[in-house]
Write a protein that binds this DNA or RNA. Sequence first.
RNA 1: GGCCCCUUGGUCAAGCGGUCAAGACACCGCCCUUUCACGGCGGUAACAUGGGUUCGAGUCCCAUAGGGGUCACCA
Length: 482
Amino acid sequence: MQVRTRFAPSPTGFMHLGGLRTALYCYLFTKKHEDGKFILRIEDTDQERLVEGAVEVIYDTLRGCGIHWDEGPDVGGPVAPYVQSERKDSYLPYAKQLIDEGHAYYCFCTKEDLQQRREAAEAQGLTWKYDKHCLHLSKEDIQQKLDSGIPYVVRQNTPVTGDSDFDDLVYGHIMAPNETLDDMVLIKADGMPTYNFANVIDDHLMGITHVIRGMEYLSSTPKYNLLYKALGWDIPQYIHLPTVMRDSKHKLSKRDGDAYYSDFVKKGYLTEALINYLALVGWNPGDEREFFTMEELQQAFSVEGLSKSPAIFDINKLTWFNAEYIRKLDADKYLELAKPWFDSVLDGKGIDYTRLAQLMQGRTEVFNRIPEMVAFLGERPAFDTSLYENKKQKSSLETTPDALKLSISLLDSVSDWTEENIHKALMEGIAAAGLKNGTVLWPLRIALSGLLSTPGGAIEIAFLLGREESMRRLESALDQLA
RNA sequence: GGCCCCUUGGUCAAGCGGUCAAGACACCGCCCUUUCACGGCGGUAACAUGGGUUCGAGUCCCAUAGGGGUCACCA
């Protein structure tokens, strides 16, 4: 049997990381199977939440992540259209059929009515559930309301006795008493289907064999199954996914400012690192491997490796992955990606970006941390002379003036300002003076950078700064000590 | 509150009746080193609780507790 899955996002304008992970698993699962088809379906039944350009965001994100769909709005397919608003007319007939067979009914209750009854029930400490009020309307009554144009919705008529159960590939056997199932709205007053209904209809019409989605749908699945049965359709296999959490109490949400794919890209996280990490939140390959390309993920993925418990999104580990991926970048690629960040604080300063990139690549965890690490090359920050003191390097406020003077004369003797020459001049001069490297190099680096730690040592920094700027900084450092 | 799901170190997690309970991130220490980082070595740290079942339980069952989800004319 051909495996057909679907990723069905709402076009909200952003790609949530939880959604991205769902898409990823869905894609991986499908590619695991011979001739499996991964379908992209846009769920835009909520006309009030339409966002301009939102569908493009979905396309771009998925493609950028290496997740490719076989059928979808833009590429077409045998069961087009793939946008729910364009399928609007296909839902009502099924709703009518359900009504005729007693599995659904017209409901004329207004939101206000409902609100009132709900509050009344809750005031008594009762659990509110639609009271099937409109189920008991007479045929004539219904027809008359319909004729006079009173707005209506269509509700599912769920049984009040018995149990519903099904098997989930991740969570196993799930059973729920029917009496706890609400008569959910299938068709809204505006004629659009609700997600709950459109989903069932489309999944069937599109031949979806495996429904892969977040576990927030686990408890409404019995209701969907009732619909499948009423329509005489086969129920698909279910694969519900554990939630991605921000911490033990909250799921990763929009308001944290770091729940969207674009947030991370903006900060300087690499897509490959994000995908790699995301794949491991809620799934493991069963062995010790941690690094995966998309191809390797396709190979390694299996439903058995999916976990049931919610997983906390660990920015720390993501950052580690990112740093690892950055280190593996080609030097050219790194420079290309780092340049805008260098420019943000060093534009026009004449710094050798190629050399700077070499020094920075191994120290960059996230690109947005670059500016604060290299800004000192553009302008030395004010610093306290106590930085010169370092016991281990045998450097103190007493040894510093002489060390800086020696540095100045040594650097002054360098004819061609290359790192090699600077290194040679300093090392030989320090040895000749009978000093320890640290005694000279430590204060030199402090004087040049004004920083306790820098990307590179005194020699690299002197080189990057250039002779003129280096000398200027050393002289002013000496003044500061006087 | 009803219903559903979940519960191994701070985090991700292996384990699928018999292990001194893996590994990774983070953290700490040491080494390397002209700082930092990288790298190398080492360390701290866990089976939520209580009952069963069993020769034997993190692994099976039942409670309790804690957490999450869901109860919309949102998806």
